[in-house]
Simulated scan of single mutants.
Amino acid sequence: MTTVRARGKAQAKRPSAKHPHDDAPDTTAEFQVLADLPDGPEKEALRQQVVQAWIPMAERLARQFRNRGESLEDLEQVAALGLVKAVIRYDPARGTAFESFAVPTVVGEVKRHFRDHMWGLHVPRRVQELRNRVRTAHRELSHSLDGRGPDVQEIAEHTGLTEQEVRVGLEALDSYTPLSLDAELPGSEDGYALLDTLGDQDAGYDLVIDREALKPKLSKLPERERQILYMRFFCDMTQSCIAEQLGISQMHVSRLISRTCASLCDQVMADAN
């Protein structure tokens, strides 16, 4: 075992072979040593060395996702995390080149970051996948349709999706980043924003509820109390006019109105509770 480790370390010190990609070094020897080393500080140090060697590739992959609402620095950090996972999980005994294993791992980590952290609205994963497929198809077809955008049927034929799935994906295109309520609406010349199109709470609904709650209570009032309330609140008569018409004092009218309204309020609140 000591001989194998020593040979591996010696190989790791030799210059790396030139790879078609400048950011893809030859770390075959290092991975062979990692496969033989037990867990411990020596293995962790060599693993960090391999990660550092492949960091340029991870950064190159991260740059492919620029201009999508996330800073390049954050994308590079996510890609580096994916690279670390690839280095830990890679098994050279399977015969697959590390780059072939690492690229989908790093790209998948970046895509998961967008899926889990960058959506302004909660959208099911299936809808997110439809959105991505529809967006990609729309971009590809736009280059071959004389500049016009593809319709639903053309996108469905290109992707193999149903037309209903394409419509769901199209609707989700605008769900990635929600529109600010203060954003000026397209075509508006006077700063008219989405917030201006929203209605306020209508107090009339509360008035309807109050009236419906009072109806059965009013019907049980004595005739004189019902008449006084009708004259005061529906005919908008003053207490003096009511007193004169009924032949009683204004003070008596005032006491009757106050007592009746308080009683009705107590009854409605009791029913509500």
Rank of each mutant, 00 (worst) to 15 (best):
T197K: 01
T197Q: 06
T197G: 02
I228Q: 09
E189Q: 09
L194G: 09
P222M: 00
L194V: 04
D206Y: 14
L207K: 10
I248Q: 03
S254Q: 00
A262N: 10
R259K: 12
L185E: 02
L198I: 10
E223M: 12
A213M: 14
Y230F: 15
S254E: 01
D236A: 15
I248F: 01
L246C: 04
E244C: 07
E225D: 01
R211T: 03
G247Y: 09
E212C: 12
A183V: 09
Q250N: 07
D206G: 10
D200S: 12
K215N: 12
A193V: 08
T260P: 11
R232Y: 11
R255T: 04
L195E: 03
G199R: 15
D200M: 11
A262I: 14
A193Y: 02
A213Q: 05
E189C: 06
K220F: 14
P186I: 00
E184P: 13
S258H: 15
I257P: 14
D200F: 12
S254V: 09
Y205F: 09
I257M: 12
L256F: 02
L207W: 11
H252A: 15
M231N: 01
E189D: 13
M251P: 11
D210M: 15
I257Y: 05
F233Q: 06
D196Y: 12
E184S: 05
I248N: 00
